[in-house]
């Protein structure tokens, strides 16, 4: 067991020794600041004020750090989160094959399955680290700018309109982060599975994003409303249910069971494809 942990630690070391990994975190911080700045524009604030006051709530009470953090979180994950998770997962095997480092690794007495499981665990950990970083840094920058207050959770595409006091609002926000990370793990699983096949790392990343985007687009077409449950992004959005009152626990359990089953299937397909490959340039 300790050897497995040592190998896992080295896998993380490989990932976090790359400048690109840290540049990614820097990019997220920059995007968060930009979104925060956009949310401060007078025109944007006016529309929020109009919206809140028309519903009978105080703008000054609910236009707070946590409200802005939630908006930043959604937009950052939408704009960049999927891309970075797909990039890391798409690279994790395919890039090593391309660079020849995997050939060096496979000269060692380690089984292919064990190696892949270590790599997949690295993808999952990266996904969680990234989402927690986005969530917590968004909360930090938004709170620094706007201060604390009530939480107005608003996401029209998912029909979310909820208001919380500061304490319960923060609790829901923090609870949503591991759920969002678990949802994004499915994106990582697609990237990982494709990375195990004989393809370039960029192709694995692009194919992952293509699937993710196509799935979102098709799901939003009314014609497919009846088969909405078949789309992965329907279940990926399960994290947002944590903001509903009451929380639809059974539905969330069903969604995450579905996602975990999909993840497990993708990993098994990836492992089988990798297991059957010859490694020789």
């Amino acid at each position: 067991m300790p050897l497995l942990l040592t190998q896992f630690r080295h896998e993380l070391r490989k990932l976090f020794a790359r400048k690109r990994t840290w540049l990614g975190f820097g990019a997220f911080l920059a995007v968060e600041v930009v979104i925060l700045a956009l949310l401060q524009l007078p025109k944007v604030q006016r529309s929020w004020k109009f919206f809140l006051e028309r519903a009978g709530y105080g703008f000054d009470q609910y236009f707070s750090g946590i409200t802005l953090a939630f908006q930043i979180l959604i937009w950052t994950v939408f704009l960049l989160g999927g891309l970075f998770v797909a990039l890391v997962a798409g690279d994790i095997v395919a890039k090593e094959v391309e660079d020849g480092t995997l050939r060096m690794t496979l000269c060692r007495p380690i089984s292919r399955v064990r190696l892949l499981l270590i790599k997949y665990a690295t993808c999952v950990l990266y996904t969680f680290a990234l989402i927690f970083f986005i969530g917590l840094s968004a909360l930090a920058v938004a709170t620094l700018r706007q201060g604390t207050g009530g939480f107005f959770a608003f996401q029209p595409l998912q029909g979310l309109f909820a208001l919380f006091d500061s304490g319960p609002g923060h609790a829901r926000y923090l609870a949503s982060l591991p759920l969002l990370a678990l949802s994004m793990t499915s994106v990582a699983s697609i990237g990982f599975m494709l990375s195990c096949w004989n393809m370039k790392p960029a192709a694995a990343t692009i194919a992952t994003l293509t699937y993710f985007i196509a799935d979102s687009i098709f799901r939003s077409i009314p014609y497919f409303e009846d088969i909405k449950q078949w789309f992965l992004t329907t279940h990926i959005e399960a994290w947002i249910h944590i903001y509903r009152t009451p929380i639809p626990v059974e539905q969330m359990i069903g969604d995450y069971a579905y996602l975990l089953a999909v993840d497990a299937t993708l990993v098994i397909i990836g492992v089988l494809a990798f297991q059957a490959r010859d490694f020789k340039s």
Binding site: Q7, H10, R13, A17, L102, P109, I110, L115
Partner: peptide, 19 residues
């Protein structure tokens, strides 16, 4: 093939750990 962005020593540590 090596992890070019890491030191020779780190490469050795990582590869040896697989054994």
């Amino acid at each position: 093939g090596f992890f070019d962005y890491m030191s020779g020593w780190s490469n050795l540590e990582i590869l040896a750990a697989y054994s």
